[in-house]
Design a protein around this nucleic acid. Structure first.
Lengths: 208, 208
DNA sequence: CAAATCTGAATGAACGATCGTTCATTGAAA
DNA sequence: TTTCAATGAACGATCGTTCATTCAGATTTG
């Protein structure tokens, strides 16, 4: 059994460890759904356990406390967001990459479940020192990746505003996120045109 | 006593009615403080009653349920915000009025307690039909007032972006609010310069 | 390879605390 | 005399968490 990896650095996962990891992942996914529907503090551990189809006690084998579960979800970036981030870091025409990012990020936040969870995490991060750290780390990473692309952009007719790429990245994220969130809850029908308008706003700030 | 208003439309308030109104107002203010510190659903009715210095039962003489109290706070606009709104509606140079509004609204959201409460209300509104209505009403009123000023602005070097005054007002509110909220929690020291940058962003979108 | 041992995931009852809400009662203002 | 703000005990429900127990799978031993 252990002969599979003679170097011994990484043991192969046993069947049990795999199912445990899957179980844990399933709990996180279920909790995220509950949190979107009811909010962090209106969701009970029993709600999550019941919906995940496991016993109450077993949930505590995977997460020490409810707070730890909340922190995990608040910290965890979704795969979608991670994909966007790596797309930002790829080679290629910066203008095309940026356009693609705007469309993707807008579509992401325009999905109500993402907008709700983001709002919930934001509110929680403002009160909980446990969460604000990882939350800001995540956000700063995304802003850094976006700022890197902005630095690669060719000069437009006028200089960007704000001139500092990081501040520009922050402003762009704010504008896209807010517009998309509005689409998610007020006028879902206008998603296409609102996204187009947002792209124009971005272009204006970039100096084109 | 009742002779004060012979037309009988508006009776004078009795001593008791006055203290009752004051008590009610005091509860609202105390609840707001608790909600900022602990969030809506981590604050108990007992917390509020204790901090307000009244009995648990008496609180229920002024608010039917905890939800009603939350709804009242989520709906209630602060005096500051109402002042800004009426300043927007005043006569005078639209450019000066707009500049003043940007500074005031930025300073308002840059105060952590206002930023926290706004985030909490936003998250709650996304899940509670009870709250989303009044919340959107308030916001739309503010946007309307801002859009009215934007319509009065003289034409700049280039047309505004977005061209529609209402969408421009929404975008401006988003940008100011997000930047100010960032100042409140990340780099409180940069308030002056960040506000100045925000003003530049606004000018850029307006077309100057 | 088979038997014995160990490990830790899984269970659900139970605990004490706290939750939102109700209610009989009191006392001061109308 | 009537009205109603004010009180705090009490209620049932639910909360997060703990715990003894079970048992399948991993590991060690013979």
């Amino acid at each position: 059994m252990q002969g599979d990896d003679p170097r011994g650095e990484e043991r192969a996962l046993t069947k049990r460890e795999i199912t445990t990891l899957e179980r844990r992942r399933h709990i996180v996914e279920t909790a995220a759904i509950c949190f979107v529907e009811q909010g962090f503090h209106q969701t009970s551990i029993r709600d999550i356990a019941k919906r995940a189809g496991i016993s109450l006690g077993n949930l505590y084998n995977h997460f020490e406390t409810k707070t730890a579960l909340i922190a995990e979800i608040a910290t965890l970036e979704s795969e979608d967001l991670r994909d966007m981030q790596s797309a930002l870091a790829a080679d290629g025409d910066p203008g095309a990459i940026l356009d693609r990012f705007i469309a993707d990020y807008f579509a992401y936040v325009a999905r109500p479940e993402n907008a709700v969870l983001a709002a919930e995490i934001t509110a929680e991060a403002m009160r909980s020192p446990q969460i604000v750290g990882p939350y800001l780390d995540n956000r700063r990473t995304l802003i850094g990746a976006l700022a890197a692309i902005l630095r690669r952009m060719p000069e437009g007719a006028t200089p960007p505003c704000p001139a500092d790429p990081v501040q520009l990245a922050e402003t762009l994220l704010d504008v896209i996120g807010a517009a998309a969130s509005r689409v998610a809850f007020e006028d879902a029908a206008t998603q296409e045109t609102t996204c187009a308008t947002t792209r124009q706003v971005a272009a204006r700030l970039l100096g084109n």
